[in-house]
Write a protein that binds this DNA or RNA. Structure first.
Length: 479
DNA sequence: CGTCGGAAGT
DNA sequence: TACTTCCGAC
C-alpha cells in the first residue's frame, strides 16, 4: 500500500505534531528529538529484536501539495489547544480521497474530541495512525496520503536511540531462560503502510510500553503507578486496579483486572522485559528503559528497595473507590497520541537475529557502568513521551515538534537514495528543536523557515515554515 | 490480596 | 505474537 508512487510527486510534508516538547515539568531528557529517537532501544534480552521491528511508527501524514512547495507550520492552532478542540480542523482534505485520509481525519477528530475521562490518551488506538496537531502545528495542505513509517530508520540515521539496561534488582536471578524462541517475527508489511479499515485497531501499545507511558504521564504517574526507583527501573503499581483498568481500556477489554494484567506482566519475566521485585507487592522492575525516559518529577519515591511499603504514602485512589463505572481514569484523560507505537503488524523490514537470552538482568541503567554493555542491548522501540495534551498544557515549547522531525526523517528514509536533503533538513530541525528547547521560554515568537532542497524523487521542494510562538496558555486548563 | 506459572483461547 | 482468561497452589 505504500504509495511510493506518490512520492514522486511534489511532496510535501506533513505535519505532525506534538507536544512533546511542551512539557516542561519533566525533567530529564534531552531534547525532543532525543526523546523520540530513543524510543528505540531497549536492552532487553531475548527478543528484542522483534521488538525492534515492532516499533511501529507513527503514522505520518504526508501531504501532497499541488504545487509543491512548502508547508508551513503555523502556530495557529495553538490557541485552541484546549482539550478538545479540533485542531485538526485545519486540515482539509483534498480530494485525494483516500480513505485513509479520511480515516485519519476521523481518527484525529475522535481523538481530539475525546474528552471523556476515559479518553485517556493512552488509548492510542489511533495514535498510530495519526498525529494530532497540537499546539503550534498545523497542517496546511490537503492531506493526501498517510504513511506509516518506522522511526527506526531515522533513528539510525540520527543515531541515537538508547536504551539502558538495568540491573536486576536484588536477588534472584533465576535463569529461566528458555531459549526457545528463535523465531522471527514475520514482518508482514513494510512499514509504510497503514492499515486501513479501522483506524482503531492495530495500534496498540504493548503492555510494557503502556506502562512506560503511564510512568511518564503526570496524570497517572504518581497516582496510579510510580517509580520507586527510577534509576533502577523499579516501579510500583500504586493502584493496580486503576492501572489494570486503564490497560483494559486501552486494549478494549473491559474485564481486564489486575489478575489478568498481572499474568501478562509475569510473562514478561521470561521475556526479559520485566523482573519482579520480590518482597514488595505490586512492584516490578523494567529490565531496561529508554534512555531518554522522561521522569515526572514528583514521582519516584525513594529508593530503597527492600522494604517498607509506604504507609501513607500513596493513598489508594480515591477515584477508584466509587463504583462508578469507569470513571477513575479520567484523570488520565488526555494522553496524546504521541507515542510511538509498535504495532504488531507493521514493521520494517528487517529482522533481527535472535538471541534468546533471557537474562534480563544485567545491565545498568543510565550509568555508565563499567561493564554495562556487555550484553547487547536490545533495541526496541518504545514509546516515549506520551504526554501531551493535558499534561502539558502550559508550556509549549518549541514548535518544531519531534513529530515533525520524525516525519521528515521518515520521508527520508522512505526513499532510498536520495534523501540527502531531507535528511539535512531533519537535522536542521533537530537542532532547531534543541535550540528551541533551550530557549523555549524566551522565545516568543519566531518563525523559522526552512527550505528543503529538492530531493530527487520524493521530495521535491518544499519550504517549511516553522513558527514558534509562545503559546497562549490561555485556555488550557486541565485540572 | 498478591504472586506464580501452566494451559487453552483470542 | 502478545496477551487474555481461568485456575490451582502458595
Amino acid at each position: 500500500m505504500v504509495d511510493q508512487q506518490h512520492q514522486k510527486q511534489d511532496f510535501l510534508v506533513l505535519t505532525a505534531v506534538s507536544n512533546c516538547l511542551k512539557r516542561r515539568g519533566q525533567v530529564t531528557t534531552t531534547g525532543p528529538l532525543a526523546a523520540y529517537t530513543s524510543s528505540s532501544r531497549i536492552e532487553t534480552v531475548k527478543k528484542r529484536k522483534q521488538l525492534d521491528e515492532h516499533l511501529a511508527s507513527p503514522a505520518v501524514i504526508v501531504e501532497q501539495v499541488p504545487h509543491s512547495h512548502l508547508l508551513s507550520y503555523s502556530g495557529l492552532a495553538c490557541e485552541q489547544t484546549h482539550t478538545d478542540d479540533h485542531l485538526l480542523t485545519t486540515v482539509e482534505c483534498s480530494e485525494s480521497g483516500d480513505e485513509e485520509t479520511m480515516e485519519t481525519l476521523v481518527a484525529a477528530e475522535t481523538l481530539l474530541n475525546m474528552d471523556s475521562p476515559e479518553s485517556l490518551s493512552l488509548d492510542q488506538q489511533h495514535y498510530t495512525q495519526l498525529y494530532v496537531p497540537s499546539l503550534g502545528d498545523v497542517i496546511t495542505s490537503p492531506v493526501t496520503h498517510q504513511l506509516m513509517v518506522s522511526v527506526e530508520d531515522i533513528v539510525g540515521a540520527l543515531g541515537q536511540p538508547q536504551w539502558v539496561t538495568l540491573q536486576r534488582e536484588t536477588v534472584a536471578e533465576q535463569p529461566k531462560k528458555r531459549g526457545k524462541k528463535s523465531k522471527r517475527p514475520e514482518s508482514p508489511t513494510p512499514d509504510i503502510t497503514f492499515k486501513r479499515g479501522k483506524y482503531s485497531k492495530g495500534n496498540t501499545l504493548y503492555l510494557w510500553q503502556f506502562l512506560i507511558e503511564l510512568l511518564q504521564d503526570r496524570q497517572a504517574c504518581p497516582r496510579y503507578i510510580k517509580w520507586t526507583n527510577r534509576h533502577a527501573g523499579i516501579f510500583k503499581l500504586v493502584n493496580s486496579k486503576a492501572v489494570a483498568r486503564l490497560w483494559g481500556k486501552h486494549k478494549n477489554k473491559p474485564d481486564m483486572n489486575y489478575e489478568t494484567m498481572g499474568r501478562a506482566l509475569r510473562y514478561y519475566y521470561q521475556r526479559g522485559i520485566l523482573n519482579k521485585v520480590e518482597g514488595q507487592r505490586l512492584v516490578y522492575q523494567f529490565a531496561s528503559l529508554p534512555k531518554d525516559m522522561v521522569f515526572i518529577s514528583g514521582d519516584e519515591d525513594q529508593e530503597d528497595q527492600g522494604n517498607h511499603e509506604d504507609g501513607g504514602d500513596v493513598p489508594d485512589d480515591p477515584e477508584e473507590s466509587p463504583p462508578s463505572s469507569d470513571q477513575s481514569l479520567y484523570d488520565l484523560a488526555s494522553y496524546e497520541h504521541s507515542f510511538p507505537p509498535l504495532p504488531p503488524s507493521s514493521r520494517p523490514g528487517y529482522q533481527r537475529s535472535r538471541q534468546s537470552s533471557c537474562s534480563p538482568a544485567t545491565a545498568q541503567w543510565h550509568q555508565p557502568g563499567p561493564e554495562s554493555e556487555s550484553r547487547s542491548p536490545a533495541q526496541r522501540r518504545t514509546v516515549l513521551r506520551p504526554l501531551g495534551g493535558s499534561l502539558i498544557q502550559q508550556q509549549h515549547l518549541p514548535i518544531v515538534s519531534a513529530e515533525m522531525l520524525r516525519t521528515l526523517q521518515n520521508v527520508q528514509s522512505l526513499q532510498t537514495g536520495q534523501h540527502g536533503s531531507v535528511f539535512r533538513t531533519a537535522q536542521l530541525l533537530g537542532s532547531m528543536c534543541e535550540r528551541q528547547a533551550a530557549t523555549a521560554e524566551q522565545t516568543t515568537s519566531q518563525i523559522v523557515t526552512l527550505q528543503l532542497q529538492p530531493v530527487t524523487c520524493p521530495v521535491k521542494q518544499g519550504k517549511l515554515e516553522v513558527k514558534t510562538e509562545e503559546a497562549p496558555n490561555s485556555g488550557l486548563t486541565r485540572e
